[in-house]
């Protein structure tokens, strides 16, 4: 990419050295803000967290080396495993519901029959704009037994559901969180799917139709493979996001929830680190979570790569 300077006047010659200096330095200068922040606020805390997970803390600057104590304790800590079960259960339920729902909505919206597409797009995506904390506040009020909107609607269909106390029954507590999370995220997935669907080459459909393929067959053999990258992306992002769930159940239950139904791994991390004050144990939990996410992601990538080779 060396721009060859052709003829030069005197000023051009002087500019030449300054110019080529800034030309060479440019990439480093451009990257400098990012690099400083990256090393300072990502890599250094990361390293710090690794070290912390081998230490016990009890306050500002009260630390003591503890070796593998935290990790050994983690294996036997039943509260941690409750959190793991809750989190994994949530992640599976969430992904199994969000991806198909987003895709369905995107397919509907992509239909050429639709008018007011912009309105619908706004309607579906606006719930994603709200954010977990505000959504938790909103759903706290929506799920009030007997008088909240959701119970009213349910009660109109099935009267006994009017009294449903979402916050005190562990089974329904989990459903409540799932509901709120889906409300937040279906629009997000829909936008991505819509963009992907609209990028599919129409000719592929015409070719398939000419071959005599029906609607379902067209969907399975043309649409799905074409939107595979976006699907994979959403599954990966959704996995990381749902395994890291914290704000929604924390604000909703103001704690771990009925019989720990709302306890997620990150919430346990938070209460151990900033509630009980042991940042070391919190770091150990964080790394356990990273290991979990890393393993799941790797497995997923392997599956998708493998599936991709056999269309």
């Amino acid at each position: 990419m060396n721009g060859k300077q052709g003829d030069c006047s005197y000023s051009a010659a002087r500019r030449f050295t300054l110019w080529s200096l800034q030309r060479r330095a440019a990439p480093y200068l451009f990257l400098l803000p990012f690099l400083i922040l990256f090393f300072g606020f990502v890599l250094y805390p990361l390293a710090n967290s690794v070290i912390l997970s081998f230490e016990k803390t009890a306050g500002p600057r009260l630390t003591r080396f503890a070796g593998l104590t935290h990790f050994r304790f983690l294996l036997h800590d039943w509260l941690f495993w409750v959190a793991v079960l809750n989190t994994i259960g949530f992640a599976i339920a969430f992904l199994c519901l969000q991806i198909p729902a987003s895709l369905a909505l995107a397919l509907l919206l992509n239909s050429p029959l639709v008018r007011f597409r912009n309105f619908f797009r706004f309607a579906f995506f606006s719930s994603n704009l709200v954010g977990q904390a505000f959504a938790a506040v909103l759903f706290t009020l929506l799920l009030v037994p007997r008088a909240g909107l959701v119970n009213r609607m349910l009660g109109a269909v099935w009267p006994s559901l009017l009294e449903l106390d979402w916050k005190s029954d562990p089974r329904f507590a989990r459903v409540a969180i799932l509901m709120a999370a889906l409300w937040l995220s279906v629009g997000y997935g829909m936008i991505y799917f819509l963009a992907a669907l609209q990028a599919v080459d129409q000719e592929l459909y015409d070719a398939a139709r000419a071959d005599g393929a029906g609607a379902w067959s067209r969907f399975w053999h043309v649409t799905l493979p074409q939107i595979r990258p976006v699907t994979v992306f959403l599954i990966l992002v959704g996995t990381v996001g749902s395994l890291s769930l914290f704000e929604l159940p924390y604000v909703f239950f103001q704690g771990p929830g009925p019989q720990f139904a709302g306890l997620t791994i990150v919430q346990y991390l938070f209460t151990q680190g900033f509630g009980a004050g042991d940042l070391g144990y919190a770091s150990a939990i964080a790394w356990a979570l990273v290991a979990l996410i890393g393993t799941v992601t790797l497995v997923q990538i392997k599956i998708f790569r493998g599936a991709g080779e056999h269309p």
């Binding site: 250094y44 710090n48 395994l243 919190a282």
Partner: peptide, 19 residues
């Protein structure tokens, strides 16, 4: 950078707090 992308921000939380 790719490696840190898959890292949840929470792994940084205790270390970042001390920083």
């Amino acid at each position: 950078m790719l490696l840190t992308l898959v890292l949840p921000a929470l792994a940084l939380l205790p270390g970042a707090y001390l920083l």
